[in-house]
Amino acid sequence: MAGYVVRRVVSMTLLLFLLTLTVFFLFNMMPADPARLTCGKACSPAIIEANRHHLELDIPPIEQYQRFVGGIFFGRTFSKDTPRPIECEAPCLGYSFLRNTEVLTLIARAAPVTFWLAIGGFLTWMLIGLSLGIVSALTRGRWVDRTIMGIALVGYSLPSFFIGLVLIFFVILDWNLLPFPQWTTPDKDLGRFLQTMILPWITIATLYAAFYMRLTRNQVLEVFGEDYIRTARAKGLPERVVVLKHALRAGLTPIVTAAGLDLAGLLGGAIITENIYSLPGLGSLSIGAVLASDLPVITGITLVTASLIIFANLVVDLLYAVVDPRVRVG
């Protein structure tokens, strides 16, 4: 077991290293000249050159990469030769000269929004997905099952932006049930927070719940076919206990795996949902950065998001190994 953990951690570290490398060089070849972008109206080649120096773009890419990675571990200083150098402490993901702010600060500012969006969406879809999935399995083949699976399929199919726009059209514009979304933190104004978040949660849940309904249904059906369930039933245990205690628990492993990865992916920002409901999360931050060609921010977000997923992969794998005795770890 210990050997397995060590191997997985080593491979994750390697992956993270590859990730920084890929992300850095992928974005380094973008032509939008960041030096030109910070230069403004009265711009001469000399100013661009100086800005390039200022932004440390005049050194070889390998060295830029070294400084970038160095910054993550030891911090770094930007604009060294100027009257006001910028100290970026470890972990330094870079500095956005466009917004005069450290990338990490920008990410930290946007992260709570995405966090609430992801957590709320996650709970909603797990609740709907698991319960309807079980109901569907229990009524297998009957109209309830078919209806649920039909809804699941449609929900799973629709593009998220279409769901979002339709919800806005009916709930907000046509029926005036909710005000327009306006982000606020739950501690500041809980009512407003819930009013803002309920549609984004539903949008996200519609996409994911459908998948979990199907997954849950399949798992439960599969487990029902196994001997120990038949035994439990034969023992005369109530159906409720059979379903919840035996069937669901055994079938839960792949669901947990998928849920972990999906949640991690979502924590990196839901670009479309955040865009539609103008939530200032990581997704909006990244879209803004793309539109402004703000490379340090794009690089930073990509790195954080991808790390989240890689890390979640590791956690899920380890959990899997612990929970499910069938997994060989030797």
Partner: peptide, 24 residues
Amino acid sequence: RLMDLVLAFPFLLIILALSNVLTD
């Protein structure tokens, strides 16, 4: 590992960010 790497990327963001440069 390559598959892990590809799957870890926020691909929507990457597609957006690279669209102009790669189209050129």
